[in-house]
């Protein structure tokens, strides 16, 4: 159910501009763009770039909430701008800033190196002790086994959860929501045998234990991955493992 079309004809955008060659720090600049009932913030940015100021830099690709490139802060809240309708922000102005908690490359473009490093650190791929021979066929999985991790596999790496996470904002080493949910996705995959390799990092202070369950990562996630839930579950598993290591000190580490 959407509201009736508004009679607004323009809407004001306040856009954080950062041009390293001229700006000491990001500055807000104001632009009036046409208002269309069916436009999203990304449409307004595209209009702005095409008709008003071609120097504006931002990332986008699919326009349908799949690619995860157009995440920005819209009125202070992490959003995919392709899914944030102008009509929900009437009468404006709409403040558009680069995703919080990341360095800014230029205008609305953030530096993603830290995320990429942490992303690889949890080994987000299926790890096998040994591959079974081809003639034994594929690795089969029951629907219940699939259901055990499917939710965590829906992540599109848009990083909105990082922009929402105050712990990530303040703690450089924290692996962060999406990466920990991804670790959980592979740890819970019945075809994977790499849990032991991931554990040391995941169960460390830089992993799940920096999280204080603020929960905003899950609130802003456009794919309902629920990273906060993934981390809580990993805490339970880590705790069980910790106590078990005392009961069976010579068991597998």
């Amino acid at each position: 159910m959407t509201q009736a079309p508004s009679d607004a004809t323009t809407i004001r955008l306040e856009i954080a501009r950062y041009r390293p060659e001229q700006d000491e720090r990001p500055v807000l600049e104001r632009y009036d763009v046409p208002y269309r009932h069916e436009w999203v913030v990304l449409d307004a940015l595209n209009y702005l770039k095409d008709h008003i100021d071609g120097t504006l830099s931002y990332r986008w690709s699919c326009r349908m909430g799949i690619c995860g490139s157009c995440g920005m802060m819209v009125n202070g809240v992490p959003k995919l701008t392709c899914s944030a309708f102008l009509r929900d922000y009437l009468p404006g102005p709409i403040r558009v800033e680069p995703m919080a908690n990341f360095p800014v490359e230029r205008d609305l473009v953030t530096v993603l190196d830290d995320f990429m490093e942490k992303f690889q650190a949890v080994k987000p791929w299926i790890i096998r002790d040994g591959e079974q021979p081809l003639e034994e066929g594929e690795y089969r999985q029951t629907p219940a086994q699939l259901a055990d991790f499917k939710q965590f596999s829906m992540c599109i790496n848009c990083m909105l959860c990082y922009a929402a996470c105050p712990v990530y904002q303040h703690e450089d080493e924290f692996l962060g929501p999406a990466v920990l949910a991804l670790a959980q996705r592979y740890n819970h995959d019945s075809r994977d045998q790499g849990k032991g390799e991931r554990q040391e990092l995941i169960w460390s202070d830089e992993g799940i234990w920096d999280c204080t369950f603020v929960g905003e990562c899950s609130a802003v996630c456009p794919k309902h991955v629920d990273p906060a839930g993934a981390i809580q579950q990993a805490k339970v598993e880590s705790t069980v493992g910790w106590y078990r290591s005392f009961l069976a000190p010579f068991g597998r580490g």
């Binding site: 040391e200 460390s204 202070d205 992993g207 234990w209 805490k235 705790t239």
Partner: peptide
């Protein structure tokens, strides 16, 4: 990487 003792405190 040091294994965390947080499970003790967290469970309590």
């Amino acid at each position: 990487m040091r294994r965390s003792n947080e499970p003790l405190f967290w469970s309590l």
